[in-house]
Design a protein around this nucleic acid. Structure first.
Lengths: 251, 251
DNA sequence: ACCGTTCGCTAACACCGTTCACTGCTGACC
DNA sequence: GGTCAGCAGTGAACGGTGTTAGCGAACGGT
């Protein structure tokens, strides 16, 4: 991203940046091998032949390290989603959304530990803004925003390019309308508030479904959630008026 | 529940049962005061004037204690939902479902720590069946089943008493159909598989919405999720063909 | 009154996050 | 080229965690 002051990196600084990167990568392998609970500073340090206090030269605390890992994972996930989106053929937003949603679920199910760190209840405090940390946005939040933006942008494009039925603004609960208005104001493009409400509803279904599957809250009924997920994707296609673009998964 | 061998409780056994109850209650107050992470054995013991190892006379491990607390919380939540359901006037299943769903969200938002323990990602292993523990069902699972049963039963009654549009069995993905079939076989009453799929879809929306709100995954757009929740309730009412029974919340 | 079970304690182990004081090394400046 | 500041990394230590082992006291049934 921001690499404008490209050269004035002293040799020391480069080495330091490398170490930071190595720490985060090691943290991630520990996360994968040992699970969210096993992500201990000492474990990370051990795995890279260091001692735990040394990590404090690079991160303020375990929490700080975790936040940076979270941000990196968000970015990685978003990169995957964007790549899938940009490789979609045809590149219509409806089909792109289908593929992106599927890629999201795929990433979640194949990266169980990472997904738990990003979207589990332990992430609550990581996502939470503010704290005593000043109210400047921290890495996980901007990365999380970018992630959500992929979906929001696609739904927005579907609406603008093809349209789908949305509730009239006057039919929305005023309390909801005001919040949607405030949220909309923070977005790059203004959309009718009804579109925002439809997007939120779809987002809840998609996100809720994936979280429930990964965290085992669907196992009381299903042991393989993929068919149900595909059924939900078709239902979302109907809601967004792109049902005709549905294609069964490749495999 | 099962109090058939009512009397042969020796004095010692009664005292022991009392202690078990006191431990679980103390664990719950610690949970509320300190949060999920603060739920430490030593903290529980300290608060009731004991030492941590003493708790091992009553529970095999911290995990074991947590599981029992989870089961109790499930039962308590289910009691609340059943009470709300039984007090509904009129007692039509559609209206009852509306009130029960609202009560669920209310309990979740007013019992943040407890909800996190029950439905957060930390509950993953608690919910998970089997382990090396034999494959007998453990307390959290039976309690969780009872909890889900409240919703399932209401949706079933709505279908049987009034009906709502469901997909034809032949339109379901065979892979999904088989799983729904297997699940259905475990339920007390047999329902068309299309009903099961509609129920699952509704459950995902309801459950997903509440989890996302409580765990802060909706705060990027909303700071008070209630209006959106009500909108979702109305949408679910349409799906289940009981939209006419919607009433705005009492407040 | 005895004896076995139960209960709670202390001590200890291994692990965690975090702080502190101390060592080398390295880069920069005169 | 020599000196000196600053940085990376160390081991020790503090207070916390879950858990195990062994001991003593109290209790219940005979």
């Amino acid at each position: 991203m921001n690499e404008l002051p490209a050269e004035p990196l002293s040799r020391r600084d480069r080495q330091r940046a490398d170490t930071v990167r190595e720490i985060k990568e090691t943290a991630r392998t520990v996360l994968v091998e040992q699970g969210v609970d096993g992500l201990a500073l000492r474990a990370v340090a051990r795995q890279m032949g260091m001692t735990a206090p040394a990590l404090y030269r690079y991160f303020d605390s375990r929490e700080d390290l975790v936040e940076h890992v979270v941000a990196d994972l968000y970015d990685e996930l978003t990169d995957v989603l964007e790549a899938v989106r940009d490789a979609a053929d045809p590149p219509s937003p409806g089909y792109q959304l289908l593929l992106v949603a599927r890629a999201f679920r795929r990433w979640a199910t194949t990266h169980h530990a990472e997904f738990g760190l990003l979207f589990g209840s332990a992430a609550e405090r990581v996502i939470e803004p503010g704290k005593l940390h000043g109210d400047g946005e921290r890495p996980p939040q901007v990365a999380g925003r970018r992630f959500g933006g992929v979906f929001a942008e696609l739904v927005g494009r579907i609406y603008l390019e093809q349209g789908f039925p949305v509730p009239d603004e006057d039919d929305l609960d005023p309390a909801l309308r005001d919040q949607l208005q405030a949220w909309c104001a923070k977005l790059p493009v203004a959309l009718p508030l009804g579109v925002m409400s439809v997007f939120l509803s779809c987002w809840i279904r998609l996100y809720g479904m994936v979280c429930m599957e990964v965290f085992g809250h669907l196992r009381f009924a299903l042991d393989d959630a993929e068919p149900m997920f595909e059924a939900e994707l078709r239902a979302l296609g109907v809601v967004l008026d792109v049902a005709g673009e549905y294609r069964p998964p490749a495999t």
